[in-house]
């Protein structure tokens, strides 16, 4: 139980160094050497490196292994508290130490335009403001918080909702970081509804979930949704079953219209 974390001033130093002429070298070469004097030892946190824990590299093309990594990471650090998990110094250490190599593969800097690279590193290697907004950019941060929010010990598979969460980018980009999504009951209700109605979501799932979110956000303007039980929220979503069913991906509509116009032309 002796996890290292960076000192606050060192995190700032790393960020400032990015503006220098060789600021990206560390990220391009994978340098994980940091002065011991720039770190604190946290005796109340499990050292993630001590057990030899590693994250699975993304397999290109298209297989990120995010779900497997998130479950494994959360299992490894299950005892971390939410307040400990909002310490930006810890996440900066993880991203610049034990998980630097993983991040370099998950977020290849070389593929970014040169002028975007500093911003890219700031977004993906640091957690500027620990909170839901950072779920969108810092993978390691999301690997703990995603399972933390969706873990349900009362389910046969406690990670069933986590599996749904990582099945689609819309959940981690819109559901979790959004205001409504910060209510555990709300998030669980939406994910559960989709799982329990898999036939309804067999096509155009992204567009249908976006429709649900739009609808619920509208209703939340006059109704305290966070006061409702998970079942109440699922029942509420169920009232829009017909509209959900007829929701089509706008890209599909645009494509069909284009094809129709081309045929007519």
């Amino acid at each position: 139980m002796t996890q290292r974390i960076f000192k606050n001033a060192y995190v700032e130093k790393l960020k400032t160094a990015l503006a220098g002429p060789r600021g990206l070298d560390r990220y391009l070469s994978g340098d994980v050497e940091h002065p011991e004097l720039e770190m604190w030892i946290k005796r109340d946190l499990k050292d993630v490196s001590a057990s030899g824990f590693t994250l699975k590299d993304p397999e290109l093309p298209g297989k990120t292994n995010d779900l497997e990594n998130a479950i494994a990471f959360y299992e490894e650090l299950k005892n971390m508290t939410p307040t400990q998990a909002t310490d930006h110094r810890l996440w900066a250490y993880y991203c610049h130490g034990p998980f630097m190599e993983f991040l370099r593969k998950r977020r290849p800097i070389e593929k970014q335009e040169e002028k975007q690279r500093v911003r890219f590193v700031l977004d993906h290697w640091f957690v500027e403001n620990p909170g839901p907004a950072a779920f969108k950019s810092n993978d390691i941060f999301l690997f703990w918080w995603g399972p933390y929010i969706t873990y349900d010990k009362d389910r046969e598979d406690p990670f069933e909702l986590t599996r749904e969460l990582f099945s689609m980018l819309d959940y981690t980009r819109h559901l979790l970081p959004g205001y409504q999504g910060r209510s555990r009951q709300f998030t669980h209700a939406v994910l559960e509804f989709v799982i329990e109605n898999d036939g309804l979501f067999s096509k155009n799932k992204e567009a249908k979930v976006r429709f649900i979110m739009r609808k619920l956000n509208f209703i939340a303007g006059y109704r305290a949704l966070a006061t409702l039980s998970k079942q109440d929220i699922k029942d509420l979503i169920g009232k829009y079953r017909d509209e959900i069913s007829s929701t089509v991906d706008p890209d599909v509509i645009r494509r069909a219209e284009r094809e129709k116009a081309e045929t007519a032309g």
Binding site: P132, W145, R182, S183, A226, T227
Partner: peptide
């Protein structure tokens, strides 16, 4: 009566009735 408690940093949002 409902007290809505929201802590953005720790993603805590709960209503107490």
């Amino acid at each position: 009566f409902v007290t809505h408690v929201h802590c953005m940093k720790s993603a805590f949002r709960q209503c107490f009735r």
